[in-house]
Nucleic acid binder design. Structure first.
Length: 581
RNA sequence: GCUGCUGUAACUCAGGCGGUAGAGUACUACCUUGGUAAGGUAGAAGUCAUGGGUUCGAAUCCCAUCAGUAGCUCCA
């Protein structure tokens, strides 16, 4: 039989390949630790894993041993043979092997499904398949890490040990993948954030990031951009307090649905809470006066700092923190305005993400178990989101039961350096807060009516968005948000006067400039400036001082040669204005 | 929060099956005036995360706590 080359680009092929790899891992582990109980072992995005229940704790030191065993299985080149058993026999078969997790899995399979097994050598696993033809097709395999994972993803169930691995049709492809991972680690926003001195998180404040001067530049640029774009789109801005009476949170429903994530405090004898969301404050702001239907749609923005008690193990640099600023807005409207408003926000988010060249995907999250409101209210809100998406013709995935407790949402997800996605933008229809706070407006009929409210963010959280920006650009930011846009380096101290004069000129043009006139060699200063990821490095020596020029090097394009200070300034101002990436 | 791993100078890390610490970078001083990724010499700098325990003696072994980290769970 002629050997066909694997088309590893094909998702199904990749899936089968990794799935078979996971069976090889399971077989190897059973060989070395026969008492290990098998749970599940699927293929995932960049590899596979298998969950085991075993008293012995795996460590990465065991990987060599396991991999050796896996290579033996691969060399044996066993065929993967499929067979089916009737339900009772299937259960008995696994019960005889003392594989209780498998028994549970079979019991939960629907009645009408064939129960299939795959056999390779002396190893048999419950599996729907499909698989590769034989173990020998897996040419390169590597175990990556070991971690705990709950049985069936339920934190109330037992924690198993999960071994992650990856595999490829050739060693070269595996090596390239590992190299890419190493490369991606260099873009980690926690590493770059420290190197560029953008932000810091101290032991005294787990999950509470400090922004340093250079990080504040990025933050302030984003906020100023945010304000400009919101003003253009008819938004007003408010600011509501961080601490409000506990009674407010009873009214809003947060007391019943969000208490575990909130921080509380006392003022005099009164009980207060630190806001985890901005909506209740915005409700109070709305209620301060009467509105006419003519006031709608009314768009009220707020850069609101919230505090949420996230589990310690969930914290992650700027991506997952315990205090963050939401670039929030609440839009109050009439029923007939809903679709247009949602589309307006979708377009707004798309506009902002495109400026940075971000790829994103959208998820629609529906009613969760712990929800307020009736099924009918949820249905209306959910279909409004769907309609808007369909009108735009945008693809989305449905995330059943993942909505906020007060309404369904469209989430916009961005990718980090290693391909994990983070929810950033979100559009949520909230039919609960307007009811609970008894919001009204006077309609054309002169009667009171309930407004519809959507709650939305564009960046999501400024902190998380900055984290994504850092990883996306690996610290080489678009000029308009770059903390240091220009750094002037003198060849010797003789040219300090000229450098200071250029610095003044550039500053007057509104550029963020640093100057390095230290008594150091140019190579040394240059290396330092490059490590700082300065956008433009200008060398100043005899040539430049005499002709009134700069020799420019761009962090993205390399050497640009010599140019006049005026031409350099003009080109930078243009680049900033266009928000070029 | 759960499971595993980690915590040594400002940073990156070495050391460690017990005898109170080391490198490079950064910092300070001096020498060097050098054209596109590290010039030289010297100096200062650490309650080895914190609290207990074992021991004549703990950075090293044990326990707890705190923090970080990879996943899980949960979420912007």
């Amino acid at each position: 039989m002629a050997k066909e080359k694997l088309n590893f680009e094909d998702e199904q092929v990749r899936h089968d390949f990794r799935h078979t790899s996971s069976h090889i891992l399971a077989q190897a582990v059973k060989k070395l630790w026969p008492e290990a109980k098998l749970a599940i072992g699927p293929a995932i995005e960049n590899g596979f894993y298998y969950d085991f229940d075993l008293d012995y704790k795996f460590s990465e030191a065991d990987f060599l041993k396991i991999q050796k065993e896996m290579k033996k299985i691969i060399s044996a080149n066993n065929k993967l043979e499929r067979f089916e058993l009737p339900r009772t026999e299937a259960i008995q078969f696994m019960a005889d092997k003392d594989e209780l997790y498998k028994v549970e899995l079979i019991q939960d399979l629907p009645e009408d499904v064939a129960i299939s097994f795959y056999k390779q050598g002396d190893f048999v696993d419950l599996c729907a398949g499909p698989h590769m033809e034989s173990t020998g097709q897996i040419k390169a395999i590597k175990l990556m890490s070991v971690a705990g994972a709950y049985w069936r993803g339920d934190e109330k169930k037992k924690m198993l040990q999960r071994i992650y691995g990856t595999s490829f049709p050739s060693q070269e492809e595996l090596d390239a993948y590992v190299a890419r991972l190493e490369e991606a680690k260099l873009r980690d926003h926690r590493k770059i954030g420290k190197e560029m001195d953008l932000f810091a998180i101290f032991e005294e404040g787990p999950g509470f990031p400090f922004f340093m001067p250079k990080g504040m530049v990025i933050r302030n640029e984003l906020e100023s951009f945010w304000r400009t774009e919101h003003t253009k789109r008819g938004y007003d801005e408010i600011k509501t307090p961080l601490i409000l009476s506990e009674s407010l949170w009873h009214t809003s429903g947060h007391w019943d649905h969000y208490q575990n994530n909130m921080y509380f405090t006392k003022i005099d004898e009164g009980d207060f809470a630190i806001k985890p969301m901005n909506c209740p404050g915005a409700m109070l702001a709305y209620k301060r006066k009467m509105y006419s239907y003519r006031d709608f749609p009314m768009r009220i923005g707020e850069l609101g700092q919230v505090h949420r008690h996230e589990l310690s193990g969930a914290l992650h640099g700027l991506m997952r923190v315990r205090t963050f600023t939401q670039d929030d807005a609440h839009i109050f409207m009439l029923p007939e305005q809903v679709k247009e408003e949602i589309i307006g926000v979708i377009d707004f988010i798309d506009f902002v993400y495109n400026i940075f060249g971000f790829k994103y995907h959208i998820e629609l999250s529906t009613k969760p178990e712990d929800a307020m409101g009736t099924d009918e209210e949820w249905e209306i809100a959910t279909s409004a989101l769907k309609e808007a998406m369909d009108a735009k013709g945008l693809p989305y995935v449905v995330n059943e039961g993942d909505g906020a407790f007060y309404g369904p949402k469209l989430d916009f997800h961005l990718e980090d350096s290693i391909g994990r996605t983070w929810q950033c933008g979100t559009i949520q229809i909230d039919s609960q807060m307007p009811q609970r706070f008894d919001l009204t407006y006077i309609g054309s009929d002169g009667e009171k009516h309930r407004p519809i409210m959507i709650h939305r963010v564009i960046f999501g959280s400024i902190e998380r968005f900055i984290g994504i920006l850092i990883e996306h650009f690996a610290g080489k930011f678009p000029l308009w948000i770059a903390p240091v846009q220009v750094k002037l380096l003198t060849v010797t101290e003789k040219f300090s006067d000229y450098a200071v004069q250029v610095e003044k000129q550039l500053k007057e043009a509104g550029l963020r400039v640093e100057i390095d006139i230290r008594n150091e060699k140019i190579g040394y200063k240059l290396r330092e400036a490059r490590n700082e990821r300065v956008s433009y490095i200008c060398v100043i020596g005899e040539r430049e001082a005499e002709s009134g020029t700069l020799t420019v090097r761009s962090s993205k394009e390399g050497e640009l040669g010599e140019m006049s200070v005026e031409a350099f300034t003009a080109s930078l101002i243009e680049e900033i204005k266009e928000k070029r990436c």
